[in-house]
């Protein structure tokens, strides 16, 4: 069972949980670094990203209490519960009249069962993605998803060993394959102005640095922007100029690109670097 199938199984489980327990209004599963694993059908991805953005600070500063094991938020009309399950977190939003014992029983039985099954089918599932640490990328709310399951290439330090009787010949090493491009989920923001090229989008320094680090200093000139409807556009990429958009998980795009992708400001898109 690969990650996609596992995520699909978890998504279905979340939907089923809502069927048997209608008092659960929203449910989603994420990793500590902010990567969304699965969400129920009722919860838009943008809402999940916003919720994780709100929780981001707590996870970031939870070292003082040795990490987060759970969060319970009580409101007049409902509550949010974040529970830790292995290395994943499940967030559930319930109505105020929900029977919490029942909700707790349901989520603490079903989700761990599905996770256990997923692990049995593929022990590396959901664990082998080398996601960057929060401090490295500090993605807010652009949660990065590395699809590559290949281990990072060790720097080639193979020394030339002298073999008796053989002339020393320089070895031609094959070029190390590039890692798969990371996919960043970013929120579309308008980019306007007289001198703005219509084929260029802008992302923040964190994202560009993360890519540069991954591709060892290669300059990323182009990105592929993909909507959740599957529409894609290849654009040039530059750094965001406005400080207010730094670290917000924003991709600024001109109107023309938005028209091509059939999206508007505020919608979530996937952005990945083009490395050739």
């Amino acid at each position: 069972m690969n990650d996609e199938v596992c995520a699909f199984a978890l998504k279905n489980t979340l939907n089923e949980i809502q069927n048997i327990c209608p008092d659960i209004k929203n449910a989603f599963i994420f990793k500590e670094d902010g990567e969304v694993i699965a969400g129920d059908a009722n919860t838009p991805e943008e809402t999940i990203v916003r919720a994780l953005n709100a929780l981001d600070g707590i996870f970031d500063k939870a070292d003082s209490i040795n990490g987060v094991e759970g969060i319970t938020l009580e409101g007049n009309k409902g509550r949010v519960i974040v529970s830790c399950m292995n290395d994943l977190y499940l967030a559930t939003v319930t109505s105020g009249k929900a029977d919490m014992k029942y909700v707790d029983t349901v989520i603490r039985v079903l989700i761990p069962t599905v996770l256990k099954l997923a692990k049995e089918f593929n022990p590396t599932s959901l664990k082998n993605n080398p996601t960057p640490s929060r401090t490295e990328s500090d993605l807010k709310p652009g949660f990065s998803t590395y699809k590559s399951s290949e281990p990072e290439e060790e720097p080639a330090e193979e020394s030339l060993v002298e073999r008796p009787g053989q002339p020393l010949e320089p070895e031609i090493k094959p070029e190390a394959p590039l890692p798969d491009p990371p996919v960043n989920q970013l929120i579309a923001e308008n980019l306007g102005g007289l001198l703005v090229p219509s084929d260029t989008v802008r992302v923040d320094n964190d994202t560009l640095s993360q890519w540069a680090e991954l591709y060892e200093g290669r300059k990323i000139e182009e990105v592929e922007v993909e909507t959740f409807d599957g529409k894609t556009a290849r654009c040039k990429v530059r750094l965001i100029k406005e400080k207010k958009y730094e670290g917000k998980g924003i991709v600024q795009m001109p109107e023309k690109v938005q028209l091509v992708l059939e999206i508007k400001k505020g919608e979530l898109v996937r952005v990945k670097p083009v490395v050739e």
């Binding site: 003082s64 938020l73 409101g75 409902g78």
Partner: peptide, 25 residues
């Protein structure tokens, strides 16, 4: 701050409290 943002986002009315449970504290 998270409590306020999440109550607004999920329309949970007035925020009453938030409990964060760590491994020790």
């Amino acid at each position: 701050d998270a409590c306020r943002e999440l109550t607004e986002l999920f329309d949970l009315g007035d925020a009453k409290s938030i409990a964060v449970e760590g491994k020790d504290v």
